[in-house]
C-alpha cells in the first residue's frame, strides 16, 4: 500500500526504555528522506520530504515525489547523452540539472565483441566510439549506495549508440516501470525505447536478426545498425515518427502517464480524426485526444 506523507508528518514512533537498545517491536531504522526527533520517552521518525513511504523490514525511507527527479534502479533502461569523455569513462547526462551518470570503458563491448582487458590504446580511441553529444541507450549497472550516483553499462547487443531517429523528453515520473522498455509500435513499423529517465527514443524498425548467424550476433547487430544509420528515413516514416512524438508530447502536456498503450491510442485517434501530425499539439486537440487517458 502506498502511503503519501508530507514534510513534518510522523511516520513511526517507538519508546526508548532505559537508554539501551530498543527492544520495542515498533523500532525502526532511519532511511533517506526522514529524520528522528526525541520527545520525552519516545523516538519519532518524521518525513523530511513529500513522497511515498517505503518499508524494508525495519528500514523506513521516503521516496520523494518530485516529477523532475530520476532515482535509478539497477537494471533500468535509460537513454542519455554523452557530456564528456574522460580517461577511462564517459559521463552521461540522464536528466538535466541532476548529477551525470558514468559509463566506464569496461562497461562497453569492444568492436567485434572481443573479450580482453582494456588497454591504453583503447582509452585513446574512446572518442572514436562515443563522442560528446552522442545519444546512447544503456542499462543501470550499479547505484552508488553513498550518494545514489549511477554507473551504466552497454554490455548487451540491445544497448548501443542511437542514430537516425527522434528524441522526446518527458518528466521521469511519467514513465512507469514495466517488463519491457524496448517496443515495436504502430504495426511494427517503429522501434521505441522508453527510457526510465524520461527520454524516449523513436526510430524506424530495425530488420529482424537472422537466427542462423547466432554465433556472430555482435557483428551482425553492428552491421544492422550501420545500415540503419546510413539509410535515409522515408517521408512516410518521418510523418509517423513525428505523429508518435507529438502523441507523447500531448500526454506530457496533460501530466498523464506516458505508456505505449496511451501513446498508440492517441496516435490512432489522431489518424481517425484526420489530424496532421503538427495539428495534434494545438490545445483544443490535445484536450480532446487525451480525454481517455485523463480519467
Amino acid at each position: 500500500m502506498m502511503q503519501l506523507v508530507i514534510p513534518g508528518q510522523v511516520i513511526a514512533s517507538s519508546s526508548i526504555e532505559g537508554g539501551g537498545e530498543s527492544k520495542d517491536e515498533n523500532s525502526f531504522l532511519r532511511g533517506h528522506g526522514t529524520y528522528v526527533e526525541r520527545v520525552e520517552s519516545e523516538e519519532r521518525l518524521i518525513a523530511s520530504v513529500c513522497g511515498t513511504v517505503q518499508r524494508m523490514n525495519k528500514l523506513i525511507t521516503v521516496i520523494p515525489f518530485c516529477e523532475s527527479r530520476y532515482a535509478g534502479n539497477v537494471g533500468d533502461l535509460v537513454v542519455g547523452r554523452v557530456t564528456s569523455v574522460a580517461t577511462s569513462q564517459w559521463t552521461i547526462s540522464l536528466v538535466s540539472q541532476q548529477r551525470d551518470a558514468r559509463l566506464p570503458l569496461s562497461g562497453v563491448h569492444l568492436p567485434g565483441g572481443a573479450q580482453r582487458v582494456r588497454t591504453a590504446q583503447d582509452q585513446r580511441d574512446m572518442r572514436l566510439f562515443l563522442q560528446e553529444g552522442d545519444l546512447i541507450c544503456a542499462e543501470v549497472h550499479k547505484v552508488q549506495p553513498s550518494d545514489g550516483s549511477l554507473s551504466l553499462h552497454t554490455r548487451s547487443f540491445r544497448y548501443s549508440k542511437l542514430e537516425n531517429g527522434s528524441l522526446v523528453q518527458v518528466p521521469p515520473s511519467l514513465i512507469p516501470r514495466r517488463k519491457n522498455h524496448y517496443m515495436s509500435m504502430i504495426n511494427n513499423t517503429l522501434d521505441v525505447l522508453w527510457g526510465t529517465n524520461g527520454n524516449i527514443w523513436i526510430q524506424r524498425k530495425l530488420k529482424e536478426l537472422g537466427g542462423e548467424e547466432a554465433n556472430n550476433l555482435a557483428d551482425l547487430q553492428e552491421q544492422l545498425r550501420q545500415e540503419h544509420a546510413s539509410t535515409p528515413v522515408l517521408p512516410d516514416e518521418r510523418q509517423s515518427i513525428a505523429r508518435l512524438r507529438n502523441a507523447i508530447e500531448s500526454l506530457r502536456l496533460v501530466h498523464s502517464m506516458v505508456t505505449p498503450e496511451f501513446a498508440e491510442e492517441i496516435y490512432n485517434r489522431s489518424v481517425t480524426f484526420g489530424l496532421s501530425p503538427s495539428q495534434i499539439l494545438l490545445p483544443q486537440n490535445v484536450v480532446s485526444l487525451t480525454e481517455i487517458c485523463r480519467q
Binding site: 517521408p235 512524438r245 503538427s278
Partner: peptide
C-alpha cells in the same frame, strides 16, 4: 523533406 521533428 518538409517534415520537421514535430510534423510541421
Amino acid at each position: 523533406e518538409n517534415c520537421r521533428q514535430d510534423g510541421r
